[in-house]
Computed example of a mutant assay.
Amino acid sequence: MGEVKYTFIRKHTKKYTVKLLCSLLKVIRQGYYDWLKRRKSNRAIDSEMLIDDIRKIYTEFKGRYGSPRIALELCRRGKFTSKNRVARHMQQIGVAALPWRKKKVTSRKPSSEGVAENLVKRVFDTKVKHVLGVVDITYIPLQTGGFLYLATWIDVFSRKVVGWAMQARMTDQLVIDAFKQAIDKEHPRSVL
């Protein structure tokens, strides 16, 4: 019953004095002031309710929503707040949006079998033509979306592109085609 009386006093302190209201409702003034100290502010109560709503939306959308989307979802549900306030509360409770896009795998790690021995050992210098060649693969973005992959076969002696191939997919055949073009164009004789 004291809670109801204290709430009534708090609502009417702008019109009447606390002393008058306490005497009319037969409560002790010190008890009212102690209740005020224990009572949470409206802002603190709103913050607790907002944190509960943030947690619900965060779990409902499996952690994929950040503060802007959670604030928008709260507004859709009739609880208007800013994305900055949502961000502060998310940081306070230790939640953040998870990345939702899978990274596109552009290369594959080769298995141990089928890997050739490293004969070059990062020494890219030779005194004879057609002894050492290297391949470079790059991609060219298209205006329509997607990529074209370009493989170039370079003779280390002359630093000249001697073969190239282009495909819509990056496959082993891309490098093989560039190598075949280099062989057909240069006609190297066996040096061994």
Rank of each mutant, 00 (worst) to 15 (best):
L25E: 05
N42S: 10
A97C: 10
T59V: 11
K102H: 15
Y6P: 08
K129G: 10
A168H: 10
Q30V: 14
L72R: 08
L119P: 08
R76A: 03
H130G: 13
G31V: 03
Q173M: 12
P68M: 01
K40L: 10
Q143S: 14
H130A: 14
E73P: 00
H12A: 04
L24I: 14
I137Y: 01
D177C: 04
I70V: 00
Y33H: 07
D125T: 12
D155K: 03
L148V: 13
V134S: 04
A182R: 00
V131N: 14
L98D: 07
K79E: 10
R189H: 13
R169Y: 10
D136H: 11
L25K: 05
C75G: 10
V123A: 13
E113S: 14
L174Y: 00
Y16L: 03
R159E: 00
I28C: 15
H89L: 15
A97F: 06
Y6F: 15
I54P: 02
K26P: 08
M49Y: 09
F61T: 08
S107T: 12
K14N: 10
F8I: 13
G146Y: 04
D52M: 08
R29D: 11
D34I: 12
R85S: 06
D53C: 06
A71F: 05
G163F: 04
M166T: 05
R38V: 13
I57W: 00
G63D: 02
K129E: 14
L142W: 02
A87F: 01
L20N: 01
L74V: 00
H12N: 13
T81N: 05
T126H: 02
V27M: 06
I54K: 01
T59K: 12
K79D: 08
R38I: 15
V135G: 09
V175M: 11
E3D: 13
R10C: 14
G94C: 04
D155L: 05
F61A: 07
V86A: 06
T13N: 08
L174R: 01
L132D: 04
K40C: 06
A87Y: 03
G114Q: 01
E60K: 10
Q91I: 12
K5W: 02
G63P: 01
C22S: 08
I45H: 01
L98N: 08
T59F: 11
S23D: 10
K103Y: 09
T13M: 13
S47F: 07
